[in-house]
């Protein structure tokens, strides 16, 4: 079997032709509806908290905590994974997806111990979100400090 660069390029074309694409239209539709529903639910919660005389910031935080809690329960019951298979990005992009990505390694790796398993692996998927979120916020803060005020 020739493995020259030319053969590899030709093979790459063959693979692309043989490999089916994801059904992007139906996937997007599912993501739109499911993601939209989660956000509409978030709005409902937000209104509830605002009615209880929380400030806007407090209410927003309460919404986040509630959604993270719901996601953790669904993940622990093995249901979030089933939702995720159907909804795709609809259950990845909302904060519930972030929560799912923290809870799942915590459950999966608890067999390797509560310190080096559960705790150490907890941010296996979501760690980069914290790292790059923090770095970007520093960049935004620095620019704001220099020219924004």
């Amino acid at each position: 079997m020739q493995t020259t660069q030319k053969a590899q390029q030709e093979y790459d074309k063959m693979v692309k032709k043989a490999s089916p694409n994801s059904p992007i239209f139906t996937n997007c539709l599912k993501a739109f509806v499911s993601g939209g529903l989660i956000c509409a639910g978030g709005q409902l919660l937000l209104n509830l908290f605002l009615d209880r005389n929380f400030t806007e910031n407090e209410a927003a935080l309460c919404v986040s905590i509630t959604l993270i809690g719901i996601s953790a329960v669904l993940t622990a019951l093995g249901l979030y994974e089933k939702l995720g298979k159907f909804c795709g990005a609809g259950t990845i992009v909302p904060i519930t997806g972030f929560a799912n990505s923290v809870v799942s390694p915590a459950i999966e790796f608890k067999k390797e111990g509560m310190v080096f398993g559960m705790a150490a692996k907890m941010f296996l998927v979501a760690g980069p979100v914290i790292v790059y979120g923090t770095l970007t916020s520093m960049l935004v803060g620095l620019i704001y400090f220099l020219i924004g005020r």
Binding site: G36, A89, V93
Partner: peptide, 23 residues
């Protein structure tokens, strides 16, 4: 919210990005 998720879905299906990268 739905539209933000659709953009994520297009990125996943078109670029084979893992969910962690999307986040």
């Amino acid at each position: 919210g739905g539209l933000l998720c659709v953009i994520g879905q297009i990125l996943i299906d078109k670029t084979k990005l893992m969910s962690g990268r999307i986040l």
